[in-house]
Computed example of a mutant assay.
Amino acid sequence: MKKRALLLAVAAATVTSAAFATPQTQWQEGQWQVDLGAWNTEASVNYDKLDGEGGDGTTNDKWNFTGGLTYGLNDKWAVQYNYYGLKTKGSSETDGLGTDGNAQEVNALYSINKNFAAYAGYNRIKNKFTSDDISESLTNNVAQIGIIGKAPLTDKLDVYGKAAIGTKNTTIWEAGLGYSITPDLDVSAGYRYVNTKFVDKGYYDAADDANISYKGFIAGLSYRFGADRDEAPAPQPAAPVYRPQPQPQAAPVVQQAPVRNDYYLESVHFGFDEDQPLSTEQSKLDHFVQVAKANPTHTFKLVGNTDSRGTDGYNNALSQRRVDNVAAYAQSQGVPASQLVLNYKGENDPVASNDSDQGRADNRRVDIWENK
Rank of each mutant, 00 (worst) to 15 (best):
Y110M: 06
N102D: 11
W77R: 06
E266W: 04
N354H: 14
S131Q: 03
S332W: 00
N102Q: 13
G166F: 03
I165E: 13
V79L: 02
D362H: 15
N60D: 11
I212W: 12
A11V: 12
S137W: 10
Y314H: 13
S308T: 12
A227H: 08
R364E: 11
L318G: 12
S135G: 00
K284G: 10
I147C: 11
S131H: 05
G166P: 01
D262E: 15
L221M: 03
Q26S: 04
Q28Y: 04
L177N: 07
R229H: 15
L318Y: 12
A18S: 09
Y223S: 07
W173A: 02
A117W: 05
Y160N: 09
N371L: 11
K150S: 13
Q104C: 06
D133Y: 14
P248F: 04
S44F: 04
K89G: 13
E370C: 15
E231M: 10
Q333W: 00
Y263N: 15
I368P: 08
N140R: 14
Y204C: 12
A117Y: 07
K197C: 02
K126Y: 13
Y160T: 10
A120W: 03
H269G: 07
Q282F: 15
Y160K: 11
D132N: 13
A238P: 02
Q282V: 15
P296M: 10
G146Y: 10
G310I: 02
Y47G: 01
F225D: 00
D35T: 00
I125D: 07
Q31E: 00
A9I: 08
A108K: 01
F20D: 14
D56T: 06
P23W: 03
Q104Y: 10
Q320L: 15
Q24V: 09
Y71C: 02
Q236F: 11
N115W: 03
D100A: 02
A361L: 14
Q24K: 10
T94S: 01
A250W: 10
R243I: 13
G96F: 03
G304E: 11
A330T: 03
V366M: 14
G52I: 01
V15S: 05
Y110P: 07
Y122G: 07
R364N: 10
D155Y: 14
L342D: 04
A327M: 06
W369S: 13
N316T: 13
T306C: 09
N348V: 14
F116D: 10
N211Q: 09
P244A: 12
V142A: 08
S222T: 02
L302Q: 12
D205Q: 09
D208W: 10
Y329K: 00
I368L: 09
T280L: 13
R322F: 03
L157S: 04
D35F: 01
S135I: 02
P233T: 04
A250Q: 11
V323G: 06
Q247C: 14
E29Y: 00
V187F: 07
T139V: 01
A19W: 06
I165N: 14
G85L: 05
A13M: 07
A151Q: 15
N343C: 09
N261Q: 14
V34I: 04
G178C: 05
D186T: 08
Q80G: 12
D184P: 12
K2E: 15
